[in-house]
C-alpha cells in the first residue's frame, strides 16, 4: 500500500488536474446539449484536432505558446465549417440522427488525422518555464500540471461570471431552459447557439493542446476522452455549468483515486456511478431546468 501524506497530496493534485481537463471538454458539450438539445459525439474528435494542430504549430511556428493560441482557433474554424455544412441542418433531426451523423464524423476525422499526421504518438514539450517541479502543499509537483489546473480554474471562473452576471449569460440560461419563450422575447437563439458552439469548440481545442505534454497526441485520444466527457455531462445534468463542474470533479477524482486504491475496478466504478445516477436522478445531479 502506497502511503504517506505526500503521496495522497500528489494524487489529489492529479485528480484536480484531470478534473479540469474534463471540465474544459464537458462544458462546451453540455451547453451545446442544453441549449439546442444537440448531441455532438464528435466533440472528442475536435479535442484531438486541437492536439494535432497544436503539435504542428509548435513544430513550425513558435513552440508551445503558439500551439496554445492556434490550436483553439483552428478547432473553432473547423467547428464553424461543420456547423454550417452539417450541424445546422441536423438541429431538429432528433437525437438519434445527431448521434449517427456525429458518430460518422468521428470516423472521418480520425482517418483524416491518421492521413495527415500518421499513426504514431506525437509529443509536445511543455514550455521551459513550466518544465520543472514546484513546491505546492509541501510536495514537489510538476509545474506544468499546476498550469493545466490553473487554466481550467480560470476558464471555470470566467464562464461562471459570463453565465451568471451578464446579459448574454442570462440569454443563454433562458435559451437552455425554454428556447421557444426566449425567442418570443426577441432573442435569436440560433445565433446564440452558434456563438456557444464556437466557444465550446475552442475550449475543446484548448483542452487538446494542453493535454499533449501530458498524454501525447494519438488518433485514439478523442474516442478515449469522449466517454468520460459524456459521463460528466450526464452525471452533472445537461446544460448546467455547475453540473459540469461537479461531474468533472466526481469523475476526475474517482478515476484518479480508483486507479490507486482499487486498480482494475477503477474504470468500472465510473460506469457504476453513471448507471446509479441515471436510475435515481435521470436528469443528472444539477440539471439546468430546476
Amino acid at each position: 500500500m502506497p502511503g504517506g501524506a505526500d503521496f495522497w497530496i500528489t494524487q489529489f493534485l492529479n485528480g484536480l488536474q484531470f478534473s479540469m481537463l474534463l471540465f474544459l471538454l464537458s462544458i462546451g458539450l453540455t451547453v451545446i446539449f442544453g441549449l439546442l438539445h444537440f448531441v455532438n459525439l464528435a466533440h472528442g474528435a475536435l479535442y484531438m484536432l486541437g492536439a494535432y494542430v497544436g503539435v504542428s504549430a509548435a513544430a513550425h511556428l513558435g513552440g508551445y505558446w503558439s500551439a496554445l493560441v492556434l490550436g483553439p482557433l483552428a478547432v473553432m474554424a473547423i467547428g464553424i465549417v461543420l456547423y454550417l455544412t452539417l450541424i445546422k441542418r441536423m438541429r431538429r433531426a432528433g437525437p438519434m440522427n445527431q448521434v449517427l451523423v456525429t458518430f460518422g464524423l468521428i470516423f472521418v476525422i480520425v482517418d483524416i488525422v491518421r492521413i495527415l499526421w500518421g499513426d504514431v504518438a506525437l509529443g509536445l514539450a511543455e514550455p521551459a518555464s513550466l518544465s520543472g517541479p514546484i513546491q505546492i502543499f509541501g510536495v514537489s509537483y510538476p509545474a506544468y500540471r499546476v498550469f493545466v489546473t490553473a487554466v481550467g480554474l480560470v476558464v471555470m471562473i470566467a464562464l461562471s461570471v459570463v453565465l451568471n452576471r451578464t446579459q448574454i449569460g442570462a440569454m443563454i440560461r433562458a435559451g437552455v431552459e425554454n428556447d421557444a419563450m426566449a425567442a418570443c422575447l426577441g432573442i435569436n437563439v440560433e445565433r446564440l447557439f452558434f456563438l456557444v458552439f464556437c466557444v465550446g469548440c475552442a475550449l475543446a481545442g484548448l483542452a487538446g493542446v494542453i493535454a499533449v505534454p501530458l498524454f501525447s497526441a494519438t488518433p485514439g485520444m478523442g474516442t478515449d476522452i469522449l466517454i468520460p466527457t459524456l459521463i460528466v455531462v450526464v452525471i452533472g445534468g445537461l446544460g448546467s455549468l455547475n453540473g459540469a463542474i461537479l461531474g468533472s470533479l466526481i469523475v476526475g477524482f474517482i478515476q484518479t483515486f480508483g486507479a490507486v486504491v482499487t486498480p482494475g475496478l477503477a474504470s468500472v466504478l465510473v460506469y457504476v456511478l453513471l448507471a446509479a445516477v441515471l436510475i435515481t436522478k435521470p436528469a443528472g445531479l444539477l440539471p439546468a431546468r430546476g
Binding site: 440560461r173 425554454n178 439546468a288 431546468r289
Partner: peptide
C-alpha cells in the same frame, strides 16, 4: 413560461433588451 433559472430581475431585463 417564466424562466425559473433566472431571477425576476433577469427575466425583466431580458425583455427590456
Amino acid at each position: 413560461d417564466v424562466f425559473g433559472a433566472l431571477t425576476v430581475e433577469e427575466n425583466l431585463h431580458l425583455a427590456a433588451r
